[in-house]
Nucleic acid binder design. Structure first.
Length: 443
RNA sequence: CGGGGUGUAGCUCAGUUUGGUAGAGCGCUUGGUUCGGGAUCAAGAAGUCGUAGGUUCAAAUCCUGCCACCCCGACCA
């Protein structure tokens, strides 16, 4: 993509609206544009990043045998009455009416829809287990949208639902999904931890959350320094005197005994919830009479699990973990472009060389953002820092005369190496092909 | 929903106290000099001052209602 006619409206000044790093950086780098509170357009950079994240998600979901579907965003409100969720979830739903005054809502989540679908379409228990997933926009009229796409009213989510005949089978799939989730976050270069969580409005028995550890996180997590107990602080019984939030420090502690090993205090950290998995039990299958005959000829309600990933929130979480004021470096597999190619000055030979290199990179299948604008070096470098492509190629007059190009690799762009112009494409493709997804630390 | 704050050019803001014909910087357009970390000179375009009503000879400025957005709390991926 050539920069001069790309929709990448970077800005020198910071928006007054943004408070957290990821929001500031997304606005400054021209990734997103706010249309209303909690409602954002994704510009080309963000769209490409989201596409890359969803690609990783699809790979892992397909690998565990989940089947991709597309469920309706428009849902009859009646479904939510049937599942008895209208009371708790009602205010969160965007509700509307069709021309006959039938009440509808925009999909905030899809347990009801998927249960009805599988109830009507499953023929035999022999088809089980079955796992369905979709990647779709969700609508929630959040009490308080904030921090840009971090808590938006319209956001991109991957939601999956599993159906089995027994609780044990659900447990097996739950564990498979847990492993898949770890792999997804690791492949995306996001450092996450898994903690025990509250089931909330979803209902069901067990649930665990995946958190990207970050100081700007909205959740407080607790960890036992002795055993491997880890939980969202919400599930701990705290009295008013105990310190609820870990102030400004990255880590702090709370004097509550570990529920697992009775160690007298727990470590606290903040996290951004990027994934949540639930064992739903039979709550929805009972409500919608989603049953099948088992081998003994008995009608039994299906056991369900559900598994969500906040795709657009992951994008923000990556910036929180990897960004700094005015600069970012995306993991190669998620980056909007592999390479940012920068031509410096308006010398004709430089431009010619850069045009040629751009064409060759494109031909080799490299995703490249070519800054072909007639701008000062400083402008181009600053924009490159903001956009955060992990590889950078820089062509100046001196280098071109010597048949060389400057190569840089994030996150430390202060170092650079000179490589022969002729070898540049090969060098870059090697970097891309040899790249191993960064393995994030997992608990 | 309660508490706090902000709405003036595409963006960041001044001007509001004390009413008197709309300002700056950045960005944008045209031309010149520059060209490896947001350069510079000259000329220019751009605003129903969130919105509706009121007070007044006169309102961005004073009064009332409404709306939007941001921040602090309960909710969630």
């Amino acid at each position: 993509m050539r920069f001069h006619n790309a929709l990448i409206p970077t800005t020198k000044e910071e928006s007054a609206q943004a408070q957290v790093l990821s929001h500031k950086l997304m606005l400054r780098s021209g990734m997103v544009h706010q249309l209303a509170s909690g409602v954002y357009s994704s510009l080309p950079l963000a769209a490409r990043i989201l596409r890359n994240i969803t690609q990783v998600v699809r790979q892992h979901m397909d690998a565990v045998g989940a089947q991709e579907v597309i469920l309706p965003m428009l849902q009859p409100l009646q479904l939510w009455q049937t599942s008895d969720r209208l009371k708790q979830f009602g205010p969160l739903l965007f509700q509307l009416h069709d021309r006959k005054q039938m009440p509808f809502c925009l999909g905030a989540t899809h347990e009801e829809v998927i249960t009805v679908l599988l109830r009507d379409c499953l023929r035999s228990y022999r088809q089980l287990p079955m796992v369905m997933y979709q990647i779709q926009t969700k609508f929630r009229d959040e009490i308080r949208p904030r921090f840009g796409v971090m808590r938006a009213r319209e956001f991109l989510m991957k939601d999956a639902y599993s159906f089995t005949l027994t609780q044990q089978e659900t447990q097996t799939i739950y564990e498979k999904m847990r492993q898949a989730y770890k792999a997804i976050f690791a492949d995306c270069g996001l450092q996450t931890v898994v903690v025990d969580a509250d089931c909330g409005d979803m209902g069901g028995n067990t649930s665990q959350e995946f958190h990207a550890v970050a100081q700007s996180g909205e959740d407080v997590l607790v960890f036992c320094p002795e055993c491997n107990y880890a939980a969202n602080q919400d599930v701990l019984p705290l009295d008013g005197t105990q310190q609820k939030s870990p102030n400004d420090e990255l880590e702090s502690r709370v004097d509550v005994p570990c529920p697992a090993c009775k160690h007298p205090s727990l470590k606290q950290q903040r996290g951004i919830e990027v994934g949540h998995i639930f064992d739903l039990g039979t709550k929805y299958s009972l409500a919608f009479q989603a049953t099948l005959q088992d081998a003994a000829g008995q009608q039994v309600p299906l056991h369900m699990g559900c598994y969500g990933i906040g795709v657009s929130r992951m994008m923000a979480a990556l910036i929180e973990q990897r960004g700094a004021s005015g600069c970012m470096c995306w993991p190669l597999q998620i980056a909007p472009f592999h390479v940012q190619l920068i031509s410096l000055g308006n010398d004709a030979t430089v431009q010619q060389a850069a045009d040629g290199l751009y064409a060759n990179l494109m031909r080799a299948g490299v995703q490249v953002l070519y800054d072909d604008r007639n701008e000062q070096a400083g402008v181009k470098f600053n924009d490159a820092d903001l956009i955060g492509c992990p590889l950078r190629l820089c062509l100046g007059k001196r280098a071109v005369q010597q048949g060389q190009v400057e190569f840089q690799q994030g996150p430390d762009f202060s170092k650079s190496t000179q490589i022969a112009l002729q070898q540049a494409v090969e060098h870059v493709t090697c970097q891309i092909n040899d790249h191993q997804p960064e393995t994030a630390h997992l608990k």
